[in-house]
Structures are given as C-alpha cells and as structure tokens.
C-alpha cells in the first residue's frame, strides 16, 4: 500500500450539467496537513462530500485508505472524522450526551466512552460545560464540540470544513495547535479555510480551487514560484559599488530593485540571504541590514485571481471584437 491516505483521480460532480467539481486529482499523505483554498462556490465542500460518500460521484474516483467511499462506506467512516461547516448538535441534549450518542454510533466500548469523551472535551477547552445543554452554546463552542467528537473518535484522517469559522483569535490559535498535534500523532488533516495566513502557517501543501478545478497545487514556496515568479523578498541595506549587478548574478534571484541609495530589494524564488551577504562582503561592501519576507499565501492568492480577472477581460474583449 502506498503512503497516501487519500487519492482522488479526475473527481467530478455535476449538478444538472453544471460541473461543481471538474476533474480534480490530488493525494494526501499520511500525517500530512493539506489545505483546500478557493473562493466561495469553488467546489471545496462538494469535494469533501464525495470523499465521505455523502454525495454521489459523477465521474472519477476517490479512495480513502484504499477504500471506495461509495462501495465501502463503513470502512471509510470508521477511520475518518468529519467536521462539517456550521456543525449542529441536538440542542436539548447536553454536550456529553451528544458525544455519547456519537460514541455509541461509532461503537466505542461503553467502558471507554466517558473517559474518551472527558479527554476530548478537555483537549478542546470545554472541560466544564459537558453537562450544559448544547442549545446554550455559542457558535465557537459548537465548533469546538465538533472537534472534540473527532478527537474522541481516534481517526487516521480528519476532514475539517472551515474549522476556523466562528472562532475567536485565541481559539483559532488553539485549533491550529490541535491540528498540529493531530499531525504529530500521524493523523492526516484535510482542511478548507478562508484564513490564508492561518492555512499557510499550518499546511504542508495546499490546493487552490477555482471554479471546480484545482488551479494550483503544492507547497506555498512552490506556488509562489509559479504565480509570483519568486516569492521571497530579500531586503538588503549595504554600502558598496556595483552591488546591484552582483546581486542579480546570484542564482535564484529574479529581479533586483534599488529602493534607495543603499537599499536593495531582491525578488528570489528561494531564501538567498546567505548568498547576498557573501556578495556584499566579497564586493568589498558593508552590510548593515538583511531581512527576508517569506512568500505569503495572501499575495499568491490575490495575484492569481487578479491575473485570472485580467485574462477573462482580455478574452471577453477578443470575443466582443470577433462578434
């Protein structure tokens, strides 16, 4: 068996002829944190539903730990935890009773149940409200309770659809910590989110959805290279002659900008601080400041969709001329 826990091949979902997800292929490795990004309606949730067998696949295939969610749903659902966006619970029941019900459905031994529930509630920061009715919970508390359910289930894949929505900054931070600890336990995490900065800080790889297709797929630096033609902004403050030429000779540097009398900005596809420092010293200059700005997902995202909009304008103009 390969090391991939999820493998999607040409996954397609059509609603009455309109493709919501259109030939999507990707893999998620064991213990990997994989992010699904993209504007509203891009097809992230639909992709997730197909992985869980909650909606029928129109074409293509997906396998979760070697099982087909449509043909062997129980095998899949035994090892996958799912946190839907805006998760709901039975309002008239207490948090603990809600989890007890799911625990019974999962088939956790009655002797084990309460212990695991208590541990999970503890881990999501809800240790004291177990006996409260969920009806009195805030949106964020429900979200945490949903996460507790996954922790209780002891899964090897966690699928989280916009887990950060409704969480305060502190809770978001805790959630990311929990996700990292899941990864540490060898759990693969697939999450969709609109908080790009957060996604970047936690995800190993991301897939950028656009209109049902995966437009970009890879690590953030990889995407930066594709979209920004670099992504690393290295700022150098140094005195010396002809430093600009020396900098542009460094492998990986795409462009050099002179921002001031002795300030340079290098656009590179990797971190070139060491080479820049060496260039200054070798050129007989004096290095005063050196800093690097990692490529931001935010920048990649907005640049990609700006380009997309420009292209669309161009094609529509061409079409208008042709008409």
């Amino acid at each position: 068996m390969s090391d991939n826990v999820i493998e999607a091949q040409g996954l397609t979902k059509r609603y009455g002829g309109i493709a919501a997800v259109d030939g999507v292929s990707f893999t998620v490795g064991r213990g990997e944190i994989f992010g699904l990004l993209g504007p509203n309606g891009a097809g992230k949730t639909t992709t997730i539903l197909m992985m869980l067998g909650l909606t029928e696949v129109t074409a293509g295939s997906v396998s979760v730990l070697g099982h087909d969610p449509a043909r062997e749903p129980l095998q899949v659902k035994r090892v996958v935890g799912y946190l839907p966006d805006s998760v709901g619970f039975y309002d008239h029941m207490t948090a603990r009773d809600n989890l007890r019900y799911t625990a019974a459905l999962i088939g956790i031994e009655p002797a084990d149940r309460d212990k695991r529930i208590a541990a999970a509630l503890d881990r999501v920061g809800l240790p004291d409200v177990g006996e409260k009715k969920v009806g009195a919970f805030s949106r964020g508390m429900r979200q945490r309770l949903g996460l507790a359910e996954i922790l209780m289930k002891d899964v090897s894949i966690a699928i989280l659809d916009e887990p950060t929505s409704g969480l305060d900054p502190h809770a978001t931070h805790e959630l990311l910590e929990t996700i990292r600890s899941l990864k540490h336990d060898g759990v693969a995490v697939l999450l969709s989110s609109h908080l790009l900065e957060r996604v970047q800080s936690v995800c190993d790889r991301v897939a950028l959805f656009n209109a049902g297709r995966i437009a970009l797929l890879g690590t953030v630096p990889e995407l930066a290279r594709q979209v920004l033609g670099g992504g690393y902004n290295v700022e150098v403050e140094a005195d010396g002659e002809g430093l600009g030429v020396l900098f542009s000779d460094i492998p990986g540097v795409k462009a050099v900008d002179q921002a001031g009398p002795s300030r340079y900005r290098l656009l590179a596809d990797r971190d070139v601080r060491a080479q820049a420092a060496a260039a200054v010293v070798n050129g007989g200059g004096a290095l005063r400041r050196l800093s690097v700005e990692e490529p931001s997902l935010e920048a990649i995202y907005s640049r990609y969709f700006d380009n997309q909009a420009l292209q669309q304008q161009a094609t529509s103009q061409v079409n208008n001329h042709a008409a």
Partner: peptide
C-alpha cells in the same frame, strides 16, 4: 435543519 445529518452520517452506520 439542525445540521446534525452530515455529522451523524459521517459515523460508520448506513
């Protein structure tokens, strides 16, 4: 309407 359906059907039952 309570949004519990997908959570329940994500458990190993038919």
């Amino acid at each position: 309407n309570r949004r519990t359906m997908s959570r329940i059907l994500a458990q190993p039952i038919y």
